[in-house]
């Protein structure tokens, strides 16, 4: 399912900006409105837009299901590991980077949550499309 040339070009133009905006929300989430979840949703939208306009088959060649799954797993693992590392410094989820830079571990959590949420949404979309396109 391919859409018209206009739609395809527009979505291709839009997607990189969406990624940049998602990155901004992740990195500055601790000081301005935004944060991991919102950033992740926008990150997922950048891929989902491409899927809607170009079709699942051509997008999955660039963003493979396995890679998306790997990003999801690694970011989730990272989140739990940051939480566990805090135990060495005084408690689970202890903010052990406080004072080194703004927010301490919070930006790391935002990045982790953003990647996890983005990958998970793309994965949900992929799996539903795989089911739709198979028949």
């Amino acid at each position: 399912m391919k859409m018209s040339l206009v739609v395809r070009t527009t979505t291709k133009l839009m997607s990189p900006f969406l990624v940049a905006y998602a990155a901004y929300l992740m990195i500055y989430g601790q000081m301005s409105p935004g944060g991991g979840f919102q950033a992740g949703v926008i990150l997922a939208v950048s891929v989902i837009l491409l899927v809607v306009s170009h079709g699942y088959r051509s997008v999955k060649k660039r963003f493979r299901l396995k890679e998306v799954g790997a990003i999801e797993g690694i970011s989730a693992l990272g989140l739990v590991l940051i939480g566990i590392t805090g135990i060495i410094f005084g408690g689970f989820f202890y903010n052990f980077l406080r004072g080194y830079w703004s927010g301490g571990t919070i930006p790391l959590f935002n990045i982790g949550v953003g990647l996890k949420v983005g990958a998970a949404f793309v994965m949900v979309f992929y799996i539903m499309l795989r089911w739709v396109e198979s028949d």
Partner: peptide, 23 residues
């Protein structure tokens, strides 16, 4: 210490997903 009760199964759950994909 107590939150580790939750963190450990969670950690291994994600590890299992990764092993399933990467190995």
């Amino acid at each position: 210490m107590i939150p580790l009760l939750v963190a450990l199964p969670l950690l291994f759950a994600f590890l299992l997903v990764l092993v399933d994909i990467l190995v």
